[in-house]
C-alpha cells in the first residue's frame, strides 16, 4: 500500500471527485429539502424558510380529501406491488429453472422476454391501454396496469435468476437425488433454500419496481390511481407541504422494504456461517 503523500494523485481523481460531489448534490440535495420541508409548520409554505416544525402535513394527508385520495392510492400501490412481487418471484424462478437446459428456441424466447426492457415505457403503457380498449375491457390497476408492470419486472427477475443459477452447483441436486430425494423434494429441500438470498433479491426488485412504476402504469391504470400517479396528479393541484409529507412517507416505505430484504438475506448468510459454534473442540 502507498503511504499518504508518497505519490501525487492523478488528475482523474479530481475529475471523479468533482463528479461525485455533483452527484451527491443532485441526489440528496432536493431529497433532503423535501424531507425537511415536509415537517413545515401549519402556516408554512412550499418553500423555505421553515415556519415552525410540526407533523401537521402528515396528519393532513390522512385527514383531508382535498389533498387527493392518498389512503386509497397507497393501499392500491401496496397491494399491486405485492401481487407483482408474487408473480415475478414464481415466474422468474420457474423460468430460471427452465433456462438451465438449452431447449429448442431458448435463445429466441430469452430475447423475446427481455425485449421489453428496451421498449419506451410510456409507449408500452399506451399499447396496453389501446389493447384493452380494443378488446372492450375496462382498464384497471389489477388487470391492465398489472400486466404493464409485469413487462418491466419479469425480465429483471429473469436476469437476476440467470445470475443466481450461474453460481449454483448442480452437484447439490445430484447429491440430493443420490440420497433418495424425488424431484419436488430436491427443489423444496435443497434448490430453493440454497437460492433463497437470490429469490429475496428478485422479490425486492419486483416490489420496488412496481411501487415506483410510472410510465408503463400511467395510461392503462383506469380510473383509480396508484400512489406515484396520485402524487403526479397532486403536484398539479396541491399547493401545500402535504405533497412533501407524502414524498417523505413513500420514500420511508421504500427504505423499509429494502431494509427487510437486505436484513433477511444477511440473516440467512449468517445462519450458514455462524450457527452452532458452541462446540469448539478442535479436530
Amino acid at each position: 500500500m502507498l503511504r499518504p503523500g508518497s505519490r501525487r494523485r492523478p488528475w482523474t481523481f479530481y475529475g471523479l471527485a468533482a463528479f461525485f460531489t455533483l452527484y451527491v448534490l443532485f441526489l440528496y440535495g432536493p431529497m433532503s429539502a423535501i424531507f425537511i420541508l415536509s415537517f413545515q409548520g401549519p402556516t408554512g409554505g412550499l418553500t423555505f424558510p421553515m415556519n415552525g416544525v410540526s407533523l401537521h402535513w402528515f396528519s393532513a394527508l390522512f385527514g383531508q380529501q382535498r389533498t387527493g385520495d392518498f389512503a386509497g392510492s397507497f393501499t392500491r400501490s401496496i397491494v399491486l406491488a405485492v401481487i407483482v412481487l408474487a408473480i415475478t418471484v414464481v415466474v422468474s424462478v420457474m423460468a430460471g429453472l427452465a433456462f438451465r437446459r438449452r431447449f429448442l428456441g431458448s435463445t429466441l424466447v430469452f430475447y423475446m422476454a427481455i425485449f421489453s426492457l428496451i421498449i419506451p415505457g410510456l409507449l408500452l403503457g399506451l399499447g396496453v391501454g389501446l389493447m384493452f380498449q380494443f378488446l372492450g375491457i375496462k382498464p384497471s390497476w389489477y388487470s391492465s396496469a398489472l400486466g404493464a408492470q409485469l413487462t418491466w419486472t419479469l425480465p429483471f427477475g429473469l436476469l437476476i435468476m440467470f445470475a443466481v443459477f450461474s453460481r449454483f452447483n448442480p452437484a447439490y441436486e445430484e447429491a440430493a437425488r443420490d440420497l433418495g430425494a424425488r424431484y419436488w423434494q430436491t427443489l423444496w429441500n435443497v434448490v430453493l433454500p440454497i437460492l433463497l438470498p437470490g429469490i429475496i433479491a428478485v422479490a425486492l426488485f419486483g416490489f420496488t419496481l412496481s411501487y415506483d412504476e410510472f410510465p408503463r402504469t400511467l395510461i392503462p391504470i383506469g380510473s383509480r390511481n396508484t400512489l406515484p400517479l396520485e402524487i403526479w396528479a397532486m403536484t398539479t393541484n396541491v399547493t401545500s407541504p402535504a405533497l412533501y409529507a407524502l414524498g417523505t412517507l413513500t420514500t420511508a416505505i421504500s427504505f423499509v422494504a429494502i431494509a427487510i430484504a437486505l436484513t433477511s438475506i444477511a440473516l440467512i448468510q449468517r445462519r450458514r456461517t455462524r450457527r452452532g459454534t458452541r462446540a469448539d473442540a478442535g479436530d
Binding site: 452437484a171 447429491a175 440420497l179 450458514r272
Partner: peptide, 17 residues
Amino acid sequence: VRRGTAMMFQNYALFPH
C-alpha cells in the same frame, strides 16, 4: 437409491444451508 449405491461427490457437495 434403488441401486443400493451411494456417492461421495468431488468437493463433497454438502448442503450449505
